[in-house]
Write a protein that binds this DNA or RNA. Structure first.
Lengths: 336, 336
DNA sequence: TTGTACGCGTTATCAC
DNA sequence: GTGATAACGCGTACAA
């Protein structure tokens, strides 16, 4: 593969001149510029990003870590960040951690090795200390759905507790009193917070808490199905079901339908995250909406500002409030 | 950020020795090794990937291009490839092209600049010639859902035509004779091929072709909705609907339901790709299944073999045959 | 406006 | 087994 040296020789100029026309740092003679361009084209020259980063101590790339590459939630997240990063002519490196601590450390190490100018992280398992250590190494961080006091202004926090509250309150306002809940993995802070919101709603509306109504899931469809299965096996009565995310809600709805339990007449269902497919199930799934794509875009803008001094078109919102989106799965004219 | 030089000085050895313990290329004295490790830890040293690539002329990274980062189809694709790349301790760089030729060229240029050891491309718009040019520059390519004769053994081709045939044949076998079709964008070869399959099925079963039954969509839910709308506006009768992908089928089902048209009694519906959410709509969506995740994994294995001489655990299949997955949306005991 | 020459952080090739 | 030292490809003072 051709190097800048090859180009300079073919064009009959110095390497420095080639570099100049490449980066537009200094004016160069029109004729020489043309010769350089021609040489670049005939040689099919592509600048070596590694050499460039080494020499300039800038990679013009932003690293992003998500838990999974597949799935609607992280899909939106990646797309939101990528749009603004690309618009500003930077590149995005994506890596996934599968929510495993070892992998999370691995991929962060990788992105550090790539000398990314900054990192956008959806990090669930790695400790605050480890994260701060990365920051101290001189890599600028922005955190999604996580709060670390020491770097509070680099955190995008979603009010998961309020989301859990809104979902549960909605059920109660639909005259439901036996509100079952399929939780997310409780070691995840957001799953925990959503549960906290559930508890607060019960308390505020003086609905007695029944631990029998609670099962823990895995944030996947399978967890929704087995969650409902467990509830049915226990034989507990419930007329509402709050799921800690939409994917579990879809799984839950599938099993409920399969068992001929009418939604929402017999059991009202609500999910969380408001993924695109919530609107395509029958009945349409109620949910708690977080504008994930926008949040990720804002996070990317914050990075633009911090790392490249590029100002965002509008101020970024780092504290995000969820919205209740009631749909058919929880709305019922005649309450059963 | 600490460099190898810092480490070597702190450990009291040469840079070469540090490099050796880092890469395990040569045996080094146990004591020195320990000192190096200690120095690395206390300095928080991370090797600079750029310097490494520059010196070794290897980046240990695979570039991947997909059309979109969000969405079930490409999500599966990325996840499938990533799993095997990571298992072999290489890194994956993902970039998206939004199916625009300019962007596609851009991201490929970027990945070339990163001196990826190989590229896995889902390239829809860039020309064969341009692709071959990349290959000639010395970057090894593997193509997903595309065939270029000159590099046939690096192509993973999906038999889209057969898929279109199977979908249409299925409808005909369900005693449907007025089979409408919402096509994908016809400039995309796969959308075109799926249409070809539709035509062949009609011909083979001697069902007359009616151009009024054909509308073109955009591979998105919106296209499915507006496709049905157009058909209804035209006032053409149809008792079956073949959609060129599942997302359009979901949109189509939504509108049909909204207009109180029973699925499958009045109109049987089938999609294409068999995305995860096909099973979560009501009625469950019939589809044409391509094992996208597996295909992408195989593509990654082919790369491992070609670029790193790592043999795949099982032979990779480069010619992929689709499977019909009939579900409720097209199966009907009493035909209406 | 242009060229020379050094440095970026690492690997690889030598000698020892 | 170990340590110099020359690459690797580029940006960028500095001098011209």
């Amino acid at each position: 593969m051709a190097t800048i040296k090859d180009v300079s020789e073919l064009a009959g100029v110095s390497q420095a001149t080639v570099s100049r026309v490449l980066n537009g740092t200094t004016r160069v003679d029109d004729d020489k510029k043309r010769r350089v361009m021609d040489a670049i084209k005939t040689l099919g020259y592509r600048p070596n990003a590694h050499a460039k980063s080494l020499a300039s101590n800038r990679s013009n790339s932003i690293g992003m870590v998500v838990s999974e590459l597949a799935g609607p939630y992280f899909g939106e997240m990646m797309a939101g960040a990528e749009a603004v990063i690309r618009r500003n002519d930077k590149q995005m490196l994506i890596a996934s951690s599968h929510a495993s601590e070892a992998e999370e450390k691995d991929v962060i190490d990788f992105l550090v090795s790539c000398r990314c100018d900054a990192l956008i992280l959806h990090a669930e398992t790695i400790s605050d200390d480890d994260l701060l250590k990365v920051q101290e190494q001189g890599i600028d961080l922005v955190l999604l759905n996580r709060f670390i006091p020491q770097i509070a202004d680099q955190c995008f926090v979603l009010d998961n507790e309020l989301g859990g509250f809104l979902a549960t309150e909605h059920m109660i306002q639909q005259q439901r009193r036996r509100v079952a809940c399929i939780l997310g993995p409780q070691w995840k802070h957001d799953a925990k917070e959503r549960f906290d919101g559930y508890m607060r709603a019960l308390k505020q509306y003086q609905v007695p808490f029944d631990p029998e109504l609670i099962v823990e899931g895995d944030f996947q469809e399978a967890g929704g199905r087995s969650g409902v299965e467990k509830l049915l096996q226990k034989g507990v009565q419930f007329d509402a079901l709050v799921c800690a995310n939409d994917e579990m809600a879809l799984g839950a709805m599938e099993l409920l339908t399969q068992r001929d339990i009418a939604i929402p007449e017999q059991v009202a269902v609500i999910g969380f995250d408001d993924i695109a497919y919530a609107r395509y199930v029958t009945p349409k799934l109620s949910s708690i909406h977080f504008p994930v794509r926008q949040i990720a875009a804002d996070a990317a803008w914050l990075v633009m500002q911090r790392a490249y001094k590029i100002e965002p078109p509008q101020p970024v919102a780092q504290k995000i409030t969820p919205i209740l989106v009631p749909r058919q799965s929880s709305l019922c004219s005649s309450v059963g």
